[in-house]
Design a protein around this nucleic acid. Sequence first.
DNA 1: AGTTGCACCTGGCTGC
DNA 2: TGCAGCCAGGTGCAAC
Length: 286
Amino acid sequence: MPELPEVETVRQGLEAAMVGARLEAVEQRRPDLRFPFPERFTERLTGRRVEALRRRAKYLIADLDGADVLVMHLGMSGSFSIEQACGPIPGAGGKNSLHNHVTFDLSTGARIVYNDPRRFGFMQLIPRPEFSAHPLFKNIGIEPLGDEFDGQALARLFAGKTNSLKTALLDQSLIAGLGNIYVCEALHRAGLSPRRSAASLAGKNGGPSKRATLLARVIREVLEEAVAAGGSSLRDHRKTDGALGYFQHSLRVYGRDHEPCARCGSKVGRITQSGRATFYCGGCQR
DNA sequence: AGTTGCACCTGGCTGC
DNA sequence: TGCAGCCAGGTGCAAC
């Protein structure tokens, strides 16, 4: 499910429910998701107060009042819902409760439920002093909604790359948080072919190319619009209150192969790059 | 060192 | 109706 806008939508919902609250009970219903849960997972969380809920790339990061930082990743199909501990809502958000793997009962009376059918998500507890040097985070690239992200940064990151523009944009060690949907959408908005080389965005004599400046601008634009819409609900994504995001209605190429391009009328095509579907318009993306 | 391909899972859809 | 096959929003790791 989740790329940056979906994770950010979830973060906003969880932040409102969790920050300032204490974890009164934590239930872990299986030994692992994508990875085994950390040692003494429930014990280390029980009684802790959530001081902040941040996002870095596609990770949710809960700062706790104890020794650990709780890191959560939604994988492909993870979602959180907020329910009332006393009044179970069967099938809330349309999810199969078989796949409810973790619940947090909060001091406010709210219950946070993590559901993940494919179990590509995971949770980690990292001792605070080790956090910034942790392998999960030390290799993560620039935040595309951050102040430092612009055409200059993009051009510098892509200089000398031998892979395609599409593949480079998906590389989390370069830019953090883009996934298949928003890469396809940003490339269409910028009129750039996903097949051109990443290095072709690098500027001459040190400065950013016009293409790099444009691409950085539309990446920011498409992500901001998607966050404002609550993300794209193609299959699993729901906000923490169970409501659907609605950015999928604004997608111009993703999932629209064989449809006419909204900009030039050519037929939107689909190819495979690095084993993943790419949707693009050969008529206006060069 | 940088890139590519596969593996990890379940569920939903298509076509026979 | 049933079932085989394919596809899906991500990413760590082995192999080139």
